[in-house]
């Protein structure tokens, strides 16, 4: 087995593992983490395709490599947005709970 297909199989396991995490976990943070694992598996498949297409003196096909770089940055942007939404959600829930518990609390919003 070549090194590239070993990483290819690892990518498949990562996709399965990430998908399992997204479906099995109910906590939003765990889902975000698992989704990133799934994404890493997909990126790795691109990397394997690039490695197998090595030619012209390059260690890999530059087209899938460039797509992965773009993908990593977009994945970071999406993760950041998801985590900020989670932060806001937690703040709103805490405020709701505080309002339920202490209806006469003057600071409750």
């Amino acid at each position: 087995m070549t090194g590239a297909s070993l990483f290819g199989l690892a990518a498949c396991v990562l996709i399965g593992l990430g998908l399992y995490g997204v479906l099995a976990h109910a906590a939003p943070l765990r889902r975000v983490l698992s989704f990133n694992l799934l994404g890493a598996g997909v990126f790795l498949l691109f990397g394997v395709a690039a490695r197998r297409g090595a030619a012209a003196g390059l260690p890999g096909d530059p087209v899938p490599q460039a797509l992965v770089i773009t993908g990593i940055v977009v994945a970071f942007a999406a993760t950041a947005l998801a985590l900020m939404l989670l932060r806001r959600l937690t703040a709103l829930r805490a405020a709701e709970r505080a309002a339920d518990g202490l209806r006469d609390d003057p600071k409750g919003r």
Binding site: S5, G8, L9, A11, C12, V13, I15, G16, L17, L19, Y20, L23, L45, V48, A49, R52, G53, A54, A55, A56, L58, G60, D61, P62, V63
Partner: peptide, 26 residues
Amino acid sequence: CALIAGTLAVIVLAAPEPAPSLAMQA
């Protein structure tokens, strides 16, 4: 999920040889 990962693995192992590449054009 194991089924999905296994299916993907079959696809990865059955990838065409020689692999398509745009390296020359790039």
